Computed example of a mutant assay.
Amino acid sequence: MTLTLLTVLAFAVAADFREMRISNRLIASGLMMGLALRILGEGGAGIVHFLVNISIPVILLFLLFQLRVIGAGDIKLFSVAGGFLSMRQLLYVILAAFVTAAVIGLGKLLYQKRMAGIFGNQRTLIHFSAMILIGYFIVVWGCAIE
């Protein structure tokens, strides 16, 4: 189960860096795989857990999407992760992704400020799909949160 999600996240990061977007086909494939694995593992109750967990990122992150802090593809990718993870793991992945993004963003800002005299003003862009993947590694592979 964890390798399936890892694969989906890796493809999403590659697509995000290459095309600056995450394909809806990849999102739909990830959601279908997550649902199938939930049903296989939990039976009918897995459907309810799946629906609740894929809804959590949309509810929590909608305001940030409206403020253009995070993209719709990133929220959908969090939903895919929710289809595979427990609610607790999902919330920790979201938290870890945002903390990681804050640290990397601060580093990029400091670097760009130092280089501003040479290159002028540049936009600071963070591929949030990579932060989701890092958050996933921190939570699922780094410590056993169940």
Rank of each mutant, 00 (worst) to 15 (best):
L60G: 13
G71L: 01
G107T: 11
A28T: 11
V69G: 07
G73V: 11
F50L: 05
I56N: 14
L64V: 04
F78G: 03
G41L: 13
M32Q: 01
V58E: 04
F65V: 12
L85Q: 03
F84Q: 05
Q112K: 05
L35Q: 01
S79T: 02
F62A: 00
Q112D: 11
I70Y: 13
L35T: 05
M115G: 01
M131Y: 09
W141L: 10
T100I: 05
L61Y: 12
L77D: 07
M33E: 05
M32D: 01
T124D: 07
L85R: 00
L63G: 02
A28I: 13
L61E: 07
A96Q: 07
S55P: 09
I132N: 13
I126C: 15
P57C: 02
L63A: 07
G71K: 10
E42M: 08
A36F: 13
T100A: 03
L90A: 04
T124M: 04
G82P: 03
F50C: 03
I104N: 14
K108L: 14
L51P: 12
I59T: 07
V99F: 08
S129V: 05
L35C: 06
I104E: 10
L64K: 08
G30F: 02
R123D: 09
G44E: 01
S23Q: 04
V58A: 10
F119I: 11
I132M: 10
L109A: 09
L106R: 12
G34H: 04
